[in-house]
Design a protein around this nucleic acid. Structure first.
Lengths: 347, 347
DNA sequence: TTGTAAGCGTTATCAT
DNA sequence: ATGATAACGCTTACAA
């Protein structure tokens, strides 16, 4: 069907070794033969069979990407980042889509069934000779699905691995919250109500810390009554406002865009306009936040950067072998998405 | 590092041929030896090296997926569908993300640069021994990037290939428009204004046809003044209303959800409430449509089905070789997403 | 500078 | 029922 190196060799009257050397610019080759061989290669559109090459070299320049669920909003950007990095370094991607949300609803990470599945997929990838694996989680959490003692490096994106040899690439959530609080502060808002996420969430915790740090830096007293907990839903954002507004904050920091939408709802119901009577900011930079009225100022998750960094990390581990000292955890900074839901407060 | 078939063979005192036979249930093998060998395989967690296997069998049970841009909203679902089908049939996926939007803005498909790129990527995939290729476009159009005379089958998802040997899996756009118009008709709306997309768009054309067919079936006169062209933007949906409302339609069919958002805007500006004073429906089922107020009734693109069908098609071509007669074009039906923006009209 | 040949881990053919 | 052995297409000592 397609050509082999042997055919090229006989076509040009040289040995396969020479052809191989020419293809990979190795060894000493005469200018004339090189030219002759390259010409034939070009004319016949010859491409080395990489399967044979991989078998011989025991490397595939490919990395396995295991995505917990393709359809969760964080995935495309993360994978885009991974592919960008891999493209730059000439690595291929073998994609595995676990489809966890579809299969086990959203409690999958509590079941054991899926651990077995991950283990099996990793084995399969290893048998395909991938050089390394990136596991991409659908949401941040402590994630211990990666089996121990794997013969190839693994990095975890968007979750915390609980082991040092598996580096974690995660969002600098505290930094993000600090950044947006700083922003509010810079607009002279000092009484900032916060609608937090679920109490047990890792995000809620770090974002709260970030909020507090910003206040601290500006020597503003932290008032616990100014924070109300929601459950990430729009409705809960709406409902939280009832209590929150009793303290008459001039700005609201909702810990995700969806709840910020609920804040908009409440405000409009009460004849107030967001970004004018009360400043409101969200978190995540979900698509709809740009379509809200007014467009929501929020903090953008560094999704693509996480993917890119994950790629860098694994390729780093690969290219320098043991000498490469992987960070066990990398926090990637968020960016501020300034839109129109915040005004300058003049007390 | 990891085990080979040879080691298993010597460990059990049989030949590699027998081990291979056992692994693939081929040939005659004694019950006892089989048991013995399988035990050793299990104990040592042996997994055959698939690179070696692929080299030998000249097949990889993997298909290359070339995505024009991972971050376009249609991609995740389409790829999810592909992966689902591939998983069921035990195929692996090699993902290539062209990142076309990122690289060449949104006019990439007019340049030639990207055709070369596609060609190169296809060659690379072929050299990796993929059995087939699915090309996933970021938006529907006539797409002729696939080179001729490829040694493996290709299918095009979400675009029309211009050649018979490359089957196209596309949205049944006409059917979708017909379906939603039928729905409006069933709610007794007969004067249905439409905000079309750009005039030259393939979507605009087919959706208009669907609209007309539904009217025809109900013997309702098609009034060209009832259709105004927008450019898919929210603003254009808003602006179109100015003229459209002069004809006092009881329902508006916007050809995408974004423009339907513009319709909402216009209505609210004029103290009318969508779904109460005027029915409005969109198209695409973008995420935000569920968050509009009231939630927008729209037609859902069969994205995941397109991916799944593309998988089926390529696997069909693969498994039955030449005997498989591929359809050159498959139209996948949309589904109606009934929400709250339509009311029963009582003239 | 170029060629010979071994070997990567499988499968498959043909003996035994 | 099992075993030798030749491929698959490449890279890489080592020899010439």
């Amino acid at each position: 069907m397609t050509m082999t190196i042997k055919e090229i060799a006989s076509l040009t009257g040289v040995s396969v070794a020479t052809v191989s050397n020419i293809i990979n610019n190795k060894g000493r080759v005469g200018e004339d033969t090189r030219a002759r061989v390259e010409k034939v290669i070009r004319e016949h559109h010859y491409r080395p069979n990489s399967v044979a090459k991989n078998l011989k070299t025991k490397t595939s320049r490919s990395i396995g990407v295991i995505a917990e669920d393709m359809t969760v909003f964080v995935m495309p950007e993360i994978i885009d980042g991974i592919t960008e990095c891999c493209e730059e370094n000439d690595y291929q991607i073998l994609l595995v889509n676990l489809r966890l949300y579809k299969k086990y609803s959203d409690t999958y990470y509590k079941t054991n069934h899926h651990r077995e599945r991950v283990k099996a997929e990793i084995q399969k990838l290893i048998s395909m000779q991938v050089d390394g694996i990136i596991y991409v989680a659908a949401h941040e959490r402590v994630n211990d699905v990666i089996p121990k003692n794997l013969p190839i490096p693994v990095v975890m994106a968007y979750s915390f691995s609980n082991r040092g040899e598996v580096p974690s690439i995660v969002v600098n959530d505290q930094g993000g919250a600090e950044k947006i609080t700083e922003y509010l502060l810079s607009k002279k808002h000092e009484k900032i109500g916060v609608i937090a996420g679920k109490k047990e969430s890792i995000h809620t915790l770090s974002r709260l810390e970030g909020y507090q740090r910003a206040l601290l830096r500006h020597q503003i007293f932290y008032d616990p009554d100014l924070v109300v907990y929601g459950d990430w839903d729009r409705q809960s954002g709406h409902d939280a406002m009832e209590n929150l507004m009793k303290k008459s904050p001039t700005a609201i920091f909702a810990m995700n865009d969806v709840m910020a939408g609920g804040v908009y709802d409440w405000l409009k119901e009460h004849e107030m306009t967001p970004g004018k009577d009360v400043a409101v900011v969200g978190y995540d930079d979900q698509v709809m936040s740009a379509y809200e009225n007014p467009p929501l100022t929020t903090v953008g998750l560094p999704l693509r950067d996480i993917g890119y960094k994950a790629g860098e990390e694994i390729i780093g581990m690969l290219s320098s072998g043991d000498t490469y000292k992987a960070e066990s955890r990398i926090d990637v900074d968020c960016r501020l998405c300034e839109r129109e839901s915040v005004f300058d407060y003049r007390g």
